[in-house]
């Protein structure tokens, strides 16, 4: 007799599944895909923090971040300052890599495969092909299978998530609306993905074929997702998380972990807030712990209301 008292997320990701390999990686370098998705599994239940220099990276590591995302400007500043946002200076990324022992991720522009080649050459642990930077290609995302370094990509819905996985993404995150401190879009994207997966679960093959066409997703991946009842790779929340409660909200909605961008280093007491969000992601189902860690955190980042923004100011529409 086996009693499973684990606090099972609705979203268990089976170890003996094909690991999203119906994305075609099994025919090229599928073995390595297990290694790529493996690191994402190790990051689960953790917080990945945006940092712009070595000092912030050290603060993030000491706060308990499970990885850092190196970038030149946090989304809130990209938003405020405008201009073309590009991959960061490799020198800055290397300084961050030398400072911390946790994995270091870095962002490349959508479709900019040469930025990805550069990031792979300096040895970053994960590449985020990110809508937060200015897209470099009007139609194509990066072909990610051929890289040895794994990729994470953003999504607003199931079709977008599965298109990225089919291109080789080994990890997915919600797009949310970066640099706003408003969690509504991250919630919208997670709920959309969840609703579309529930819909697919009840379908037979012929219905799935129609649905795959409708949402622009590869049939095999959609079928695998419907069978698993969740995305076939690790899925984090991102875009607008600013408080421990926001982070726990995304976890309770079924995310495997959380990215925090501007929310930490644009707040009053970055170190304290970062520690609180880390605790909140571990104890996301324990309101007493959440209450304790939410106390006295100082000022949260100044928010931007997504509902009052113009469509052209939103980053989530970048990519397709």
């Amino acid at each position: 007799m086996i009693n499973d008292h684990s606090n099972k997320m609705a979203t268990e990701l089976p170890t003996n599944s094909t690991n999203g390999q119906s994305n075609g990686s099994s025919t090229s370098n599928g073995k390595e895909f297990t290694v790529k998705t493996g690191l994402a599994r190790m990051l689960k239940g953790g917080v990945i923090m945006d940092v712009v220099n070595a000092e912030q990276a050290r603060i993030a590591e000491e706060a308990g971040a499970c990885a850092v995302m190196a970038l030149e400007r946090v989304p809130a500043d990209i938003r405020a300052q405008g201009g073309v946002a590009r991959m960061s200076d490799p020198k800055m990324i290397k300084e961050i890599m030398a400072t911390v022992t946790i994995p270091v991720m870095a962002k490349a522009r959508i479709g900019h495969f040469v930025e990805c080649q550069i990031l792979e050459a300096i040895g970053v642990d994960y590449i985020d092909e990110s809508e937060v930077l200015t897209p470099a290609d009007h139609a194509h995302h990066v072909e990610k299978h051929s890289f040895g370094v794994p990729f994470v990509c953003g999504c607003r819905n199931l079709g977008e998530a599965l298109r990225r996985i089919s291109e080789g993404a080994a990890m997915i995150r919600t797009k949310g609306e970066a640099g706003t401190g408003d969690v509504i879009e991250a919630v919208r994207h997670m709920r959309t993905v969840n609703a579309e997966i529930s819909r697919a679960k009840g379908m037979d093959d012929s219905e799935l074929r129609v649905y795959a066409k409708e949402i622009g997703a590869p049939f095999e991946l959609l079928k695998e997702t419907a069978k698993l009842g969740r995305l076939p790779v690790v899925n984090f929340a991102a875009g607008g998380v600013a408080t421990p409660a926001d982070a726990a909200l995304m976890m309770q909605l079924g995310c495997d972990g959380v990215f925090v961008g501007s929310g930490i280093f644009k707040s009053g007491d970055a170190s304290r807030r970062a520690k609180a969000i880390v605790q909140a992601v571990t104890h996301y189902n324990d309101p007493k712990v959440l209450a304790a860690v939410s106390e006295d955190l100082g000022e949260a980042m100044v928010g931007l209301n997504v509902s009052s923004m113009d469509a052209k100011d939103k980053m989530q529409g970048r990519g397709w």
């Binding site: 007799m1 086996i2 499973d4 684990s6 606090n7 099972k8 997320m9 268990e12 990701l13 089976p14 170890t15 003996n16 599994r41 190790m42 990051l43 689960k44 239940g45 953790g46 308990g64 499970c66 992601v281 571990t282």
Partner: peptide, 21 residues
Amino acid sequence: ALQGAFNEHVQLLRQAARMLS
């Protein structure tokens, strides 16, 4: 289950217990 791939171990434990039984 503080952070990491804890759920994967739970899955393998269930599988192992079935084999043992």
